[in-house]
Design a binder for these strands. Structure first.
Length: 155
DNA sequence: GCCAACGTTGGC
DNA sequence: GCCAACGTTGGC
């Protein structure tokens, strides 16, 4: 079992948007970075938990928890010329891009800002802190526990 | 809005 | 296969 952190710009898709979906599930589509693709295709498994992170806003923040409900499968938005994520090099026979499905779980009792994450020495090795742009990031068990505790979610 | 970091593209 | 140019991400 791994833990994950998924980034999203809330103006594009937010944690509340996930909550407000009828089934509280969402295709995590549109990832067009090979390192992130490899995680989605090979590593992200149903039942694994995700830190839902809002990026590219004045105060970037981990807002809540989600759960993977379906592991990697071809990102069909890449096949659709009308999609903004269309990629003519990807085909159903040989898909380049993959996605997973996630489900809303719960908000953190207290949101955890990037500023607080940066100032915690236990979190210094997170890609997030190392200024990685990676949008799908693995989270160690220690980092997971630390952030949940900071978010008022201990036990 | 700036710009550093860094991923991708394409000429050679 | 190198690497300069270019585009994108995302914190600030």
């Amino acid at each position: 079992m791994s833990y994950w952190l998924f980034k999203t710009e809330p103006g594009c898709f937010s944690f509340d948007d996930l909550k407000n979906r009828p089934a509280m599930t969402e295709h995590w589509d549109g990832v067009r970075n090979y390192q992130a693709r490899n995680f989605l295709r090979d590593r992200v498994q149903p039942g694994e938990l995700v830190l839902f992170y809002h990026s590219n806003i004045p105060e970037p923040v981990v807002v809540g928890l989600a759960e993977v409900v379906r592991g990697g499968y071809p990102d069909f938005t890449a096949f659709d010329p009308a999609s903004e994520h269309f990629d003519p090099k990807s085909s159903p026979d040989a898909p380049t891009w993959f996605m997973v499905d996630v489900r809303y779980v719960a908000p953190l009792r207290q949101q955890v800002t990037l500023e607080r994450i940066r100032s915690n020495p236990f979190l210094a090795d997170m890609p997030l802190v190392r200024r990685s742009r990676l949008s799908i990031q693995p989270v160690t068990e220690e980092e997971w526990r630390t952030i949940l505790a900071m978010g008022g979610m201990e036990n």
